[in-house]
Design a binder for these strands. Sequence first.
RNA 1: CGCGGGAUAGAGCAACUGGCAGCUCGCAAGGCUCAUAACCUUGAGGUUCCGGGUUCGAAUCCCGGUCCCGCAA
Length: 336
Amino acid sequence: MSRISVIFFGTSDFAVPALKKLAADSRYQIIEVVTQPDKPAGRKQELHSSPIKVEAEKLGLKILQPPRLSSPTREEEKESIFPPLDGEGSGGVDLFIVASYGKIIPKSVLDIPKHGTLNIHPSLLPKYRGPSPIQVAILNGDTETGVTIIKLDEEMDHGPIVAQRILSVESGILYKTLHNRLAEAGATLLLECLSDYISEKTKPTAQDHSKATFTKIITKDDGRINWQDSVEEIDRQIRAYENWPVAWTTLDGKKLKIFDAAPYNPSQPPLSLRGGVPPLNLRGGEGELFLAGKDLIVHCARGNLEIKKLQLEGAKKITAREFANGYKNLLGKVMQ
RNA sequence: CGCGGGAUAGAGCAACUGGCAGCUCGCAAGGCUCAUAACCUUGAGGUUCCGGGUUCGAAUCCCGGUCCCGCAA
């Protein structure tokens, strides 16, 4: 039996495990990898390759970075992106795989391969369609989430489900951890369901569209902390945006990013402290800073939050203890 | 030349108008304590990013360079 020919569309880290697994499986042959063009990033506007491009180069795969995907009316462009396969009898590409490609792919392209186009989505569809399902799962404090393999159609994250797997979400999980687990699980699930899908042993089943929910694009403003919120909400906000855009507030007029924190539970303070009285009843304005033992605590609307890792504008990322060591007159200051 | 902050002990930061380079933490030794992220005593640890210049004298002022970071993209 000849190998199944695949074109892989992906851009971000999330897609890397799937590309690796696919490339490592001898049943599949990756014809080419389509990823977004290099973009200027960083202080010097250097061009940066997408993680998928980096991985594809390592694997020695052919890479395409079209600024946009061909529209059905422009046949020449289409050919340049999806050249006819070499060799006689191959008759076209079998399958497209899409994982966090970052661009809408027109239906005319989705339908090119014999078996259509599959997508890995990091949520339990129809829940959390759209661009930020992982963050929203953390923001909502979900105890479980998952990955879904769907066949793409013209609507966003709307196509029929090929396979789905549930993952539990432990409390206090950080975005990157959950992201990596979902990426691995998605890659594994894809490889598991792929051959049955190709041989049509399993048929995709339509989503229950009445239960669909949607997530929005995250902006930098979403990272701004409102200290009027409850400590639980702020804790989740920090963990959900840990990778980007990073939850932030201001201190003395400077932007302060908070990378890691946890609710501070006064019922479990360090035991008795002979010299310094632990502030068992932290009370004050929202955003006000305290020190409990050597832990940096901020008062929120309901409860208190221990800050663990932070970064002040223009400075390096450091632990809250290091920060408290050097920052003058920190106690009682209010963050906004 | 996109805008801006920064580099000083292992870490985080001070040192105003040039004049013995300090603070908090950590580390080491000892003490105290049923006990601690506590307390007390003592100690080690510095080419003040690099290269020039000004000066009796530079962390500090001047010129050049390197590196780190925030914004913007």
